[in-house]
Structure formats: C-alpha cells, structure tokens
C-alpha cells in the first residue's frame, strides 16, 4: 500500500475516467490531483468534493480496521486503516461504485474486513435471527392467549346449558 499515490497511477486513473466519460469523478480526480498530499495525515487524504468525501466515509465505516478491535477504518488511527482509506479513495477515483470498492477490499482481505457480514450460507443464522426471534415470540404470545382463552371460558355442554336455562327461567 502506498501512502502517496504515484503520478503514473494518477495519470492512468485520469485516463480511465476520461475514457469512461464519467464527469463527476473526473472532477474529483482533477481536484485530488491538484492538491498532492504533502504529509501522511488523514486530513490530507480527503477529497475536496464534499459529496465524494461523504461517500468515502460511508464506505470507510463499513470496513474493519484489521489490526484494531471492532473499529472501522474510518474511525481508526492505525497505519493500516489509513492505508486502506487511501485504497478506498483510489478505487473511488478510478470510478468504482461503492459495492465495487468494498468488493475490491474484501477480495483481498476476506469477509473479516466487512463490518456488515455478507448474506451467505454460514451467515444465514445471523441474518435470520431477528425474524426468527420475532416469529417465536409472536407465536408464543398467540399460543399463550389461545390456551388461556380455552381454559378460562370452558365450553358448556348441552346438559349444562339446559340446566342454566332452567335456573334462569326460575324453575326449580
């Protein structure tokens, strides 16, 4: 991972974007190109365009800093997190969509890097958990009511009804 994008890659990315005629990204690349990072500081990694920067941060919040405890690369001060932030911005500058950037990183670092686990076979339990718990709870609630209603209002037999009617009519 590089801390300072080297000029050749920058040129390539500009070329790529030009070929793609993707104007908003072109603008961003030109802007980042005109302010070459002087120091390895997180403030200097940033896009000038607030919309691009917001996108970069949103992506950064979904990726885990691999050497930290449960911190996103956006939140972390670790060097590796900074490097990953730079990679994210490079991919964005190349015109990748959010999903493509995230896929680029997870292809290299595995699912472990994703703070939001993908929906796959071995994470199915995870994603079904809310529905499952709610379902069990809901069924339990209804069953409870059913059983209570049944116990509390026992059906009267025909003989009971006849006797009740008998008593209600005031007959002995």
């Amino acid at each position: 991972m590089r801390e300072i994008p080297d000029p050749r890659s920058l040129f390539r990315s500009v070329w790529h974007v030009l070929c793609g005629t993707f104007l908003p990204c072109l603008l961003a690349v030109v802007l980042t190109g005109t302010t070459p990072p002087a120091q390895a500081l997180d403030a200097e990694e940033m896009f000038e365009d607030p919309a691009q920067e917001a996108r970069a941060r949103d992506i950064g919040r979904q990726l885990r800093c691999l050497v930290c405890q449960n911190e996103s690369i956006f939140d972390s001060n670790a060097g590796l997190a900074r490097d990953l932030r730079v990679v994210v911005r490079e991919r964005m500058a190349e015109g990748d969509s959010d999903a493509e950037v995230i896929a680029f990183v997870s292809d290299r670092y595995g699912d472990y890097v994703l703070l939001k686990p993908p929906v796959e076979g071995h994470t199915l339990v995870l994603w079904l958990a809310p529905v499952l718990f709610l379902g069990i709870g809901g069924i339990g609630l209804l069953t409870y009511h059913r059983s209570r209603e049944r116990r509390v209002v026992p059906e009267l037999s025909a003989a009971d009804r006849a006797e009740a009617q008998h008593l209600l009519n005031g007959e002995q």
Partner: peptide, 24 residues
C-alpha cells in the same frame, strides 16, 4: 446475543473469521 457470539462460535466451529459490526 447472536450478533455478539456468532463470530466466536463460527470461528470455533469452522475457523472462518467474520466480523459483525455496527452496520449489522
């Protein structure tokens, strides 16, 4: 509970490492 313990259990059982973070 599931979100907190699932990664531990999964790693113990299969060795797969996943992260369950704030977005989940």
């Amino acid at each position: 509970f599931v979100g907190t313990l699932y990664p531990l259990v999964l790693e113990l059982l299969t060795g797969d490492k996943i992260t369950v973070g704030a977005p989940y």
